[in-house]
Design a protein around this nucleic acid. Sequence first.
DNA 1: TATGATAATTTACGCGCGTAAAAAAATTTA
DNA 2: TAAATTTTTTTACGCGCGTAAATTATCATA
Lengths: 343, 343
Amino acid sequence: MPSKKIRNMEEFSELSGISRPTVSKYFHDPNSVRSSTRAKIESALEQFDYRPNIFAMNQNRKLTKNIGIVVPYLADPFFAEIARNIEQKCIDAGYRPTLFSSHGDPKLEIEILENLRSLKPAGVLLAPLGRASDKAGIERFCKHVPTVLFDSNIEGMGQAFIGSDNFSFVSQTVEYLTRTGESPCFFEMKYPANPNANKRRIAYLDMMDRVGLQPHVIQIEGTGWGFEEIGRQGALKLLNDGSLPTNTVLCSNDRLAIGFLSACYEKNVRVGRWPNCDLRVASHDDHPFSRFTGPSLTTAAHDYESVSENAANTLFQVIDSGGKLKDRRETVYRARLIMRDSA
Amino acid sequence: MPSKKIRNMEEFSELSGISRPTVSKYFHDPNSVRSSTRAKIESALEQFDYRPNIFAMNQNRKLTKNIGIVVPYLADPFFAEIARNIEQKCIDAGYRPTLFSSHGDPKLEIEILENLRSLKPAGVLLAPLGRASDKAGIERFCKHVPTVLFDSNIEGMGQAFIGSDNFSFVSQTVEYLTRTGESPCFFEMKYPANPNANKRRIAYLDMMDRVGLQPHVIQIEGTGWGFEEIGRQGALKLLNDGSLPTNTVLCSNDRLAIGFLSACYEKNVRVGRWPNCDLRVASHDDHPFSRFTGPSLTTAAHDYESVSENAANTLFQVIDSGGKLKDRRETVYRARLIMRDSA
DNA sequence: TATGATAATTTACGCGCGTAAAAAAATTTA
DNA sequence: TAAATTTTTTTACGCGCGTAAATTATCATA
């Protein structure tokens, strides 16, 4: 069991009885060698616990097995969750994922990508900051590294985009809200960090138009990624002014809604879907915390699993086909309405 | 500006007019060369945009500039935040941090550490899972790689531990609660994942003893890292049974408290520090979301900044002194009481 | 300006593995 | 069983850089 320490592939190949080039081939792709030799190598592997030197390996390989996963803001559990999903899928496919967060900073986003290049990644899964992103910088990066975007789309960038169908989020929440009470106003940031926000506003306007109702879009001040606080401040202002146009608020995303609910609590505004309540609040994303707000948040959930699976698989395809796809592919998944207590 | 592509350090050294070994030395530590040559290299660097090949670099160096940061559960924004802090400090010090999450799984924790070894890291900053951790596995790892623990201590493991003083958390919350109302019962998981929980219970018992009050420890069922849901279920049970011994609840940590508050909201139990309230709830950690709960959560805050700074600096020291410290160092920082509306 | 100390250059080798080419062996097919 | 095919082995080189040793150049000090 302890057995002497193995220094390199040379030594290991001797112990396994297989020549070094073949062993090397095995580590590149276990299926590329005859099953009998594969068995020999793997039995030796169990016996001697050798792992090829990563640095020496990647130095000469044109393509490493590294995959970069870049999310805009890891302190948002939504991204932490989806990153975990994707990470696992990469590992299962035999890649070595590394996780990065842009922390809401476009400069850092580009810096991460540039650093990533020196890791010679086989591919990158990128959830861009969105509006704030340095698009030229990202485009430059995408020229050199196979990249699949997820969560936020940037027109034409990368080999594919996988995300959620914003219209499907908003259509479901709007329909539900109008069906069960007063029509909703739309609560969002004036300058949203994320491009999905714009699509959601448009979807809201579209839906209200369809059902022939008057739309009200409320755009609040505030920049950055502290959405909860921004939502809270925006809500406090509205509640103090008494300037809410309807008794139903549809927030662009859950983090704003969490802030909104916090303000309501403070101002003693009863939120919920019951008759004795002052206000209904709904939202989009099904943030991990949205079931623990007071009241629990009615929202529309991403199809996490499909998004992460498709994003990862698409990247694998891109990699396997040499880094390029015939046409850029865009896939979006429908939302699922989650009816809780807030609306 | 565009200038021809530089293939390797050889080429770059010619362009910069400095010999390759000296350039190599520069990249290892810019201060190790004369300032005049440093200037020459750096001006060439601006002109030609060359970066040494990471893999070739790390292959031969006894010590890389890699640092691993391992947290138990990245979907917890608390860890996301502290990881970000530490990450930045590593970068500032010229290291290349890589972030990993054990996702609450001891097997994964060990797997991460073992994979980490093949990156030949200069050091590792590890927030262990705690109780569930495979201690033998971690110990084995620490023998080979300079490791500093943070957040959760495991007796004797690693070169140092930097965390928070659990007694200081509990003493402040207990003192505040007893000073302003009924004495608190202590709400925690029966089998907490994190060793800090035990220290907090002991501190609670100690404090109650000091002030001569009857302690009540409530231990709820549930395992894993879904603390909010566990806290919620535990609270629902208590509220349904009407078995709360006092009108003041001190939760072991904020995530349990978030679940607790959510249950209170659902059961129409008014939580807060005002006379018309049924219950007071306080907690520990100052979780990023604790200011947005309904009501906002009275809690005790970690000294994030000091913990991350000291943890990082300690690791740098360990690395600089060849991987070992004379004696294992334990440092804990005091908490700060954050008085909000829940108690 | 000479002196010693410090830093840069020259030369050379090695790290662990990828990979190409030619030869040999094992396997499949006829 | 021979021929055709696939796989493995042998041999050899190169990747980009770390690093050691001997030499030479540069600097600070007197």
